[in-house]
Design a binder for these strands. Structure first.
Lengths: 99, 99
DNA sequence: TCTTTTGTTCCATTATTCGTTAACTTTACG
DNA sequence: CGTAAAGTTAACGAATAATGGAACAAAAGA
């Protein structure tokens, strides 16, 4: 049985976009790791706030299935989505630092 | 003459997505402000690196027109795009802090 | 164990980014 | 000034995030 050719995971997406060689491969890995890390961050904050995925979804105008995908790093989300979840949903402030 | 109904700016996008009332309006404003802020950040770093938009575009596998859109906050970019520009393009490390 | 709640995955549809070209505008500089 | 370089904007197709629903899986509680 052949695997479906459609891209369903962030990992596959990155592999396709960045390829599999050298610097670009490393970049892809880091981007994936960061999506994961952000997902974990959201999950952690949500649990600290004693919320279910469904409650967070309702608060941010989406569905629990979407929250689940984000928390598991399976989607390459937009910045506004990140803000919406963290600020509107969890009441946190997020800031970027570049070094 | 009627204005086109298609959404072309991040501002319009947010207005449509979040509506125009109370908390949600505030959120939309802040998201817009952040897109702008990140664009400014990128522009600043690019100039410090003495690069043109075209050079940054080439380095990140895109075109100067896209870089321009990002720097002016006209696009709600994906996280992977943010990483690609800042890390692959400008050699910076980016980290998130939530408070 | 059984039941309920919570979380995950899959599918189809819609909306929007991304990539690109071309035309235009602004800035830099001779 | 005039010209070239740099930056902006619009428009388009293609790729894909966002969305909603449903079915399934896992965890929690009685």
């Amino acid at each position: 049985m052949e695997k479906s050719s459609s891209i369903t995971t962030f990992e596959e997406h990155l592999e396709k976009r960045y390829g599999q060689e050298g610097e670009e491969k490393r970049m892809a890995f880091e981007a994936k790791a960061k999506a994961f890390a952000i997902g974990e961050l959201i999950k952690e904050e949500r649990r600290l706030s004693n919320m279910t995925q469904e409650q967070l979804a309702t608060k941010t105008g989406t569905k629990k299935s979407f929250i689940s995908r984000i928390e598991n790093g399976k989607s390459d989300i937009q910045l506004s989505t990140l803000y919406r979840i963290l600020e509107l949903g969890l009441g946190k402030k997020i800031s970027f630092t570049i070094e």
